[in-house]
Design a binder for these strands. Structure first.
Length: 432
RNA sequence: CGGGGUGUAGCUCAGUAUGGUUAGAGUACCUGGUUUGGGACCAGGGGGCCGAAGGUUCGAGUCCUUUCACCCCGACCA
């Protein structure tokens, strides 16, 4: 992409209604803009990041034999009456009427719909196990949407559902999904923890949350410094939750818990953003909606189920909450909208232009995600812009070209490395 | 859903206590020129039903009523 042809409306001014770094930088960098309370448009850069995350999620799920589907976003109210959630979820479900005054709901989640889908289609133990998922828009009419993409009303979420002939097999799949989620968040380049969550009436290890560690996280979690143990403070009855909610991130990090972890390590508190949740459902919905299968003896049993969620649009903001500085976004390699930004320092300098164009064409041919900053702007303006947006690397073609050199600017470290013009390609190939 | 606050240029905001020329600034944008390694400078220019509706008045951004929207704190939640 040529920057001169791109729609990337960046601004120097901070939008008045944005309080978190991710919200401010995503708006200032031209990734998103607000359409209404909890409603966001994704502009070209935001859309690219969203799609990159979606692709990684899909790739890992498909490798684990999950089947992608797409359920209708608008659902008849009858679906929700059967499970009782039209009452229990209350006003969080946005209800609409069609021209015949029939009531509908914009899907906040899809347990009912997915059970209706497999009911009477999955009828034998031979059809099991089965794991279906979708990456689709959800709508939850939050009492108070806030924090930009972290708590919108309309958001992109991956929701998955697995069906099994036995609890043992459901637990096996649950564990597989935990491993799959770890692969996903690792590929995204995130520092995260898996924690025990409040599993409500199910109990046991029936519910686990995946938290991206970040100052602005809404949840307080306890983690061990030497093993993988983690828990949401909501699950620990001896902890005074209110006390920890008032502490800053730094104060919280220093505070350790009196008891040691069972592995002997130190336990400490961190703030986390919940980006994933896996939950053993059992037969709650399959019983309510009478979704049965026949076992080896020909007896009808309700399907054993588990459900799995990943907040895809929330992840866009989470990457920035965890990776930013005073200048703007610092995307991880796998989430960056473009990996290489080629900056022509002075567009009136023919030598700079021709080298920039040549490099741009060559990298495009190699399928490297590259953008060429060919705008008629000054050096400082383009640098600030590149830092705000957060391209991992910017190749600066500028005043050192007369000495046969260009610089490679590393967004994360802000270091500039001089490279001989002849060595640019090999150097870039080392980076990507 | 309780409490608080804000709606004026694309954006950030003055102006409203005490009604009175043609509604302002910065920034962004357009034109010309000078610049070209950290959001540069000079000159000129365009851009507004002052959130909406009703009312009071000779006259309303400003006063009254109604309404809508958005933000913050709390409760709730991926």
């Amino acid at each position: 992409m040529r920057r001169s042809r791109a729609f990337i409306p960046t601004t120097k001014e901070v939008p008045s209604d944005a309080t978190l770094p991710s919200h401010q930088f995503l708006v200032r960098g031209g990734f998103i803009n607000q359409q209404g309370a909890g409603l966001y448009n994704f502009l070209p850069l935001g859309k690219i990041v969203l799609e990159k995350i979606r692709t990684i999620v899909k790739d890992e799920l498909d490798k684990a034999d999950c089947n992608e589907v797409q359920l209708s976003f608008v659902t008849p109210i009858g679906l929700w009456n059967k499970s009782g959630r039209s009452d229990t979820m209350g006003k969080e479900m946005l209800r609409i009427q069609d021209r015949h005054q029939n009531d509908f709901v914009l899907s906040p989640t899809n347990e009912e719909a997915i059970v209706e889908l497999v009911k009477n289609r999955v009828t034998s133990y031979k059809d099991l196990p089965l794991n279906l998922y979708q990456i689709n828009t959800k709508f939850r009419d939050e009492a108070r949407p806030r924090y930009g993409l972290l708590r919108g009303r309309e958001f992109l979420m991956k929701d998955g559902y697995s069906f099994h002939a036995s609890k043992e097999d459901m637990v096996r799949e649950f564990d597989l999904m935990e491993e799959t989620y770890k692969k996903i968040f690792t590929r995204l380049g995130l520092n995260f923890r898996v924690v025990k969550a409040d599993s409500g009436s199910i109990g046991g290890d029936g519910s686990k949350e995946f938290h991206v560690l970040a100052d602005s996280g809404e949840d307080t979690i306890i983690i061990c410094d030497s093993c993988e143990y983690g828990a949401n403070v909501e699950t620990i009855q001896s902890i005074n939750e209110d006390e920890f909610n008032e502490l800053s991130y730094e104060e919280l990090s220093k505070k350790t818990i009196d008891e040691k972890c069972s592995c002997g390590g130190e336990l400490s508190f961190k703030k986390g953003i919940e980006v994933g949740h896996i939950f053993q459902l059992g037969n709650k919905y399959s019983s309510a909606l009478e979704a049965n299968f026949n076992d080896e003896n020909g007896r009808a049993k309700p399907l054993e189920m588990a459900t799995y969620g990943i907040g895809v649009s929330r992840l866009v903001a989470s990457v920035i909450e965890q990776n930013h500085d005073e200048s703007g976004c610092i995307w991880t390699k796998s989430t960056a909208p473009y990996l290489i930004n080629i900056m022509i320092s002075n567009i009136k300098n023919e030598a700079q232009v021709s080298l920039g164009e040549e490099l741009y064409e060559k990298l495009k041919d190699l399928n490297i995600e590259v953008i060429l900053d060919d705008r008629k702007e000054r050096f400082g303006f383009k640098m600030k812009d590149a830092e705000l947006i957060g391209f991992p690397y910017t190749v600066i073609i500028g005043k050192e070209l007369v000495n046969g050199e260009v610089q490679i600017f590393d967004r994360k470290t802000k270091n500039k490395t001089s490279v001989k013009v002849d060595d640019i390609y090999t150097k870039i190939m080392e980076l990507v």
